[in-house]
Design a protein around this nucleic acid. Sequence first.
DNA 1: GCCGTTTTCGGCCCGACTGTTTTCAGTCG
Length: 574
Amino acid sequence: MTNADIVDILEQTTKLLELHNDDPFKIRSYQSTAFNLDKLTEDITELPATELVKLPGIGKSMANKIREIIDTGHLNELDTLLSQTPEGVLDMFRIKGIGPKKIRTIWHELGIENLRDLQLACENGQIATLKGFGASTQEKILSSLEFLQSQSGKIRMDKADALAGVLRDAIAPQVDRVEISGQVRRKAQEVDTIQLLIGTSQLRATMNALNTIPFLHQHAAESSPFAWRGSMDGTEVAIELLLYPANQLDRQLFIHTAAEAHLKQAGQAGQTLLQAAMSGDDTTETAIYDRAGLPYIVPEMREDAFAFRWSAYHQADELVTWDDLRGTLHNHSTWSDGKHTLGQMADATRELGLSYFGIADHSQTAAYANGLKPQQVREQHADIDRLNEQYGPDFQILKGIESDILGDGSLDYETDTLALFDYVVASVHQNLNMAIDKATARLIKAIENPYTTILGHPTGRLLLARAGYPIDHKAVIDACAAHHVIIEINASPYRLDIDWRWIDYAMQQGVMLSINPDAHSTTGLLDMHYGIAIGRKGGLTRKMTFNALTLPEMKAWLADRKQRKGIELPANSR
DNA sequence: GCCGTTTTCGGCCCGACTGTTTTCAGTCG
């Protein structure tokens, strides 16, 4: 039981209390307790009820509930609420654009208790007739349902990575060799099958051993003597474990890592990669590409023919790696909605061996996230100056902000405040369902703003949960090129935005990309690993990676850009 | 459910935006 588990249970209780029309102020109390616990860095599970009541917004009752969760793993109240709610109604919470109140209306007014019936009710126009609903809401529900259907059975790369690791560790003691292959090895941002290859000469014994692993459940109908297929506790994703003789494993690892479209590629030798993998004795991956007469492609890029178009003017060793990173630019602290202080975040960054920590807390419009008012910006900068004096020249905190892009494309500070920052990450956080023309124009206006340095998470998508607003990617990237704006690869595994398929186009237009963790805690900094993986998949070179610039290079770049944009540097600037 | 008393009740309350209204409830980040 961790802080996050407790927060999850409280948040779910909040939603269900709202669904069941409980007292709004009681609900608020649960909500704020969850909110406050989420920000806590100390381990709540160690605190007795007498200590819990000292936390803001937590009284005797909430303290006891928190202890109940810690001690039993359950909250009685939540279990009761769950027992009173059909599972299909719970599923409705995944639909974007409707919340507890509207779900309650759908459930109680129309008696709808599952997503299928909800879809039918949308299709025959029933939803639009409900009080508080209209044709637009009905349309939104329908498109959200379609999106959810298209995403079912998939999980994000971070979860897939972790599950594949658990599987490998459970299988390893039982077999000669086990390797993670497929989408996970290819660093796909979404995974529908976790695949591992097992090297063994004892088919039946290995199958039996696999079936002794308690959290695995074989689906016999889909399996064969050479392939274990089934599921794993705690996830809907498919599990596939393929058995091969040990001497075939390298060859098969190559074949099962690459997507089919990649294997079909043929090189000068006239062989496809698949043919090259199946023939010949040397089964190292470089040898297979050699035999096919094709350049070596890293596992991340083995999706389709793009990798070979890319190799026409790049080498694999130009791809960015973690070791190329010199700093990090999009991060939050306790000044807005982060968990750790500015000093803790900067220290953690320095411990990673990086030489600059860019703070980009939320701006004033983001009231929900404690966005900084102009006065607080000045106070934070005084804090940074103080810390920077302690750090000395080899490590520095850079003064950034994540400024909200308002509905009309303007940034949410006056220019006298914007001029105080070393750089500005401009991001959309509200008004997320614009049509493509309006959304594109909005972003371009923000890009044209001389204070915008980096365009943050360009589409606002949340993988598997929200499609994001549609934008004309080429127009946005071209605008970034024209105005010397960097594009963020938001490295949070929930976002991975801009999509990797646009990285090469951006590079071709001369637009640099910044691998930004959007870290809200010290561990969040490590999300840059996902950004690296997805950047490499898109062909991102170290040369075009903005935060691969050294500290002196970064400072010079930012100062030079300000000068070119005619922005007056503050009097006390370095 | 929490909080703070002019102390055991009554007030509490992110703000922008949308879509639904015809003044505002619901949702979102």
